[in-house]
């Protein structure tokens, strides 16, 4: 049996005695996997990251990073982790090269030695190495931050919402980079509010209101989806939302981008005609209702609604 890279047992964290940021968190991250922490803003992702990176103490519970205790052995943990915070946290008045040099020395690391690890990323930003870090584009900033976080060849890399505020092309690029980092035998823990990115992780933990509501590979979440999911286009999503409150069927309706999703928990032979009749009865105009495969977001919504 392989050693867990991270093992978290019963962790709680309350801010200022009132705000419960984390409630009884239990999870394990296997060595060498890309583990995603998926949940909306304010779910507690960053708090959990701060605790894992030993910047914050939990109120209770136990955290082990490669068998080291996050409270007691925080100094040893700091030697083996890389951290990319949610906001750009390099020196904007230092050049790209100066930032990298600085963090290399802070981590007692040698740039030459670890160049092989960061080379694919560094190649993309090295044309701008004399530019001040503050003058880089959002995607470039993230790549530089990633280089700085990897320069000491950490065993675990923590990425707190690395793709928030980054354009879709750079986001895709960034995930490709994460895959290549994983091939270097570095465990990656990444948080994201974007459910569509979750499928690129080996396993994900869904987190909502400080609680973990499920840990599985993304495909398992999708396979475990209980309802039968249909999608259709409606002309007035908001009036539909109101009307659906009176729907007699056992179903869950929610807007999904430009579309509407309905998950039914009934026998579809009877339910679908009933549903169409219901919509017509309430003067809702819609286009064809078609079945669709659930995404991680659908799974998240199903779990959240069912736990309420």
């Amino acid at each position: 049996m392989s050693v867990s890279a991270i093992s978290i047992k019963g962790v709680n964290k309350t801010y200022e005695g009132k705000i419960e940021a984390l409630k009884d968190i239990n999870l394990d991250v296997e060595e060498g996997e890309v583990f995603g922490l998926v949940g909306p803003d304010g779910a507690g992702k960053s708090t959990l990251f701060n605790i894992l990176t030993t910047l914050l103490l939990p109120d209770s519970g136990q955290i082990k990073v490669f068998l080291m205790d996050a409270v007691r052995d925080y100094k040893s943990i700091r030697q083996i982790i890389g951290y990319l915070p949610g906001t750009f946290s390099l020196y904007p008045d230092l050049s790209v090269q100066e930032n990298l040099d600085f963090f290399a020395v802070m981590y007692k690391s040698d740039i030459e030695e670890n160049m092989s690890l960061i080379e694919p990323i560094w190649k993309q930003i090295s044309p701008f190495k004399d530019r001040k870090a503050g003058k880089l584009s959002g995607g470039m900033k993230q790549k530089l931050a990633l280089c700085c976080a990897l320069i000491h060849r950490p065993s675990i890399l923590f990425l707190d919402e690395p793709t928030t505020g980054v354009d879709p092309v750079s986001r895709k690029e960034f995930w490709d980079i994460l895959k290549s980092i994983r091939q270097q035998n570095i465990t990656v823990v990444v948080s994201t509010p974007y459910m569509d990115e979750a499928t690129r992780c080996d396993r994900i933990a869904l987190i909502q209101d400080g609680r973990i509501i499920g840990i599985n590979p993304p495909q398992t979440f999708i396979n475990n989806f209980k309802g039968k999911l249909y999608t259709f286009k409606s002309e007035n999503i908001f009036s539909l939302l109101k009307v659906m409150e009176q729907c007699p069927l056992n179903c869950n309706y929610y807007p999904y981008g430009e579309h509407c999703h309905v998950a039914f928990y009934e026998d579809m032979q009877e339910a679908l005609p009933k549903f169409e009749a219901f919509l017509q009865e309430h003067h809702q105009t819609y286009e064809t209702i078609t079945p669709i495969d659930p995404s991680v977001e659908d799974c998240f919504i199903e779990i959240v609604t069912h736990s309420n």
């Binding site: 700091r78 946290s89 904007p92 802070m106």
Partner: peptide, 13 residues
């Protein structure tokens, strides 16, 4: 304020 302190703190320096 800019978060560079956190970056410094998690280094072994």
């Amino acid at each position: 304020e800019t978060g560079t302190m956190r970056m410094l703190l998690i280094t072994p320096v």
